[in-house]
Amino acid sequence: MNHNQGVEKGCGAGRNGAVLDVNGRWIPCRHLMTPEEYPTPEAYWWHSHLLQHLRQHEDERDTACQACSFQAHCLLCRAAGHDYLCSLV
């Protein structure tokens, strides 16, 4: 019984951290190469449309995920995207 819940569950992109690339641009994690420019960490954290989209990922789950009994304890890696095959399905 995995109780991996809250901001610490699954993928943390846009939830519990972000990364600054070598060019000074912000990315949600080192696996999602989607750089954005914001003047401060706070501006990026609160105003990035990409981070907002990542935080709403649970609302956009596919049918197999919605029917899974583990869905409350799962947050897939966004870098894997639709290529990820869940071993539980």
Results as ranks from 00 to 15, higher is better:
residue 72 A to C: 03
residue 59 D to H: 11
residue 57 H to G: 05
residue 51 L to I: 13
residue 65 C to F: 09
residue 2 N to E: 02
residue 89 V to P: 00
residue 9 K to C: 12
residue 26 W to E: 07
residue 70 F to P: 00
residue 29 C to T: 05
residue 82 H to Y: 02
residue 41 P to D: 00
residue 4 N to M: 02
residue 72 A to K: 11
residue 78 R to F: 01
residue 42 E to Y: 07
residue 35 P to K: 05
residue 27 I to K: 14
residue 8 E to F: 04
residue 43 A to Q: 12
residue 16 N to A: 09
residue 7 V to H: 03
residue 27 I to N: 10
residue 20 L to T: 03
residue 59 D to Y: 08
residue 5 Q to R: 11
residue 6 G to W: 03
residue 39 P to N: 11
residue 7 V to A: 10
residue 89 V to S: 14
residue 12 G to L: 10
residue 63 T to H: 04
residue 69 S to K: 07
residue 65 C to I: 01
residue 24 G to T: 03
residue 84 Y to S: 02
residue 87 S to M: 04
residue 76 L to A: 11
residue 84 Y to A: 13
residue 2 N to Q: 01
residue 62 D to T: 06
residue 75 L to V: 01
residue 55 R to S: 08
residue 3 H to M: 01
residue 63 T to I: 04
residue 6 G to K: 01
residue 41 P to M: 03
residue 84 Y to C: 07
residue 26 W to Q: 07
residue 73 H to E: 06
residue 59 D to F: 04
residue 62 D to Y: 03
residue 68 C to T: 01
residue 53 H to E: 15
residue 15 R to W: 11
residue 69 S to V: 02
residue 7 V to R: 06
residue 89 V to N: 09
residue 65 C to K: 04
residue 77 C to I: 04
residue 64 A to K: 10
residue 52 Q to D: 14
residue 22 V to R: 09
residue 88 L to D: 10
residue 32 L to P: 12
residue 47 H to K: 15
residue 3 H to N: 04
residue 17 G to Y: 06
